[in-house]
Simulated scan of single mutants.
Amino acid sequence: MSKENTPKPSKDAAAKPKRAQDVYTLVVELGRREGDGLPTSATGAGLLCYASGVDEAEAVRETVAVLKTADMNPLEVTGYGTLTEREAQGLEIDEEERALMMRALEENSVIVAQMTPYFAEDDET
């Protein structure tokens, strides 16, 4: 086989080394939208999510995109960091939460771990 027939690596592949994925803990505040699946009397909801990404910005973008395709109305996203960052803050992470984070990493996905609907009477306290 001659050198002329040997495939050359693309410039894009050489210029952009693949960055490692991590999992980020995010809390997403939802507003109402028709067909969102929230209880009828809810004014919105909060979601605890674990999302994979090469950085937190990518994890947020992917989470918002997934929620929008599910007819949800994400209003605000707050990031709480990676597992390593949270442990460095002295937070205890239980085995169930670790398992969900590992699942998000393995599946390169967004996992909604908890949903808390908000109701009008909650706002009055």
Results as ranks from 00 to 15, higher is better:
M1A: 09
K3C: 03
K3H: 13
E4A: 15
T6Y: 10
P7N: 08
P9H: 10
P9M: 01
K11H: 09
D12G: 00
D12R: 01
D12M: 00
A13F: 09
A13G: 00
A14Y: 02
A15K: 03
A15F: 05
P17R: 05
A20F: 00
Q21T: 02
D22S: 12
D22R: 05
V23T: 13
V23F: 02
V23P: 04
T25N: 06
V27A: 01
V27R: 03
V28G: 09
E29S: 13
E29G: 02
L30H: 05
L30M: 08
G31F: 06
R32Y: 09
R33L: 13
E34M: 08
D36R: 08
P39V: 03
S41P: 01
A42F: 06
A42R: 09
A42W: 12
T43H: 06
T43Y: 03
G44V: 02
G44P: 00
G44E: 06
A45N: 12
A45F: 11
L47R: 00
L48F: 10
C49M: 10
C49S: 04
G53F: 05
V54K: 06
D55M: 05
E56Y: 03
A57E: 11
A57W: 00
E58L: 08
E58R: 10
E58K: 08
A59S: 13
R61C: 02
R61A: 14
R61D: 13
T63W: 04
A65D: 15
V66I: 05
V66G: 02
V66F: 04
K68G: 06
T69Y: 01
N73E: 14
N73C: 12
N73R: 13
P74A: 10
L75R: 14
V77Q: 03
G79K: 08
Y80I: 03
T82Q: 04
T82R: 05
T82P: 04
L83W: 06
T84S: 13
T84L: 11
T84P: 00
E85N: 10
E85G: 14
E85M: 12
R86I: 05
R86E: 08
E87L: 14
A88I: 03
A88P: 05
Q89Y: 03
I93M: 04
I93T: 11
D94S: 06
E95S: 13
E97W: 00
E97Y: 02
R98L: 14
M101R: 12
M101S: 06
M102K: 15
L105T: 11
L105G: 07
N108R: 13
S109R: 02
V110Y: 07
V110R: 02
I111H: 01
I111Q: 10
Q114P: 00
M115L: 12
Y118T: 11
Y118E: 07
Y118M: 11
Y118K: 15
Y118L: 15
F119K: 10
A120L: 08
D123V: 06
E124G: 01
T125I: 12
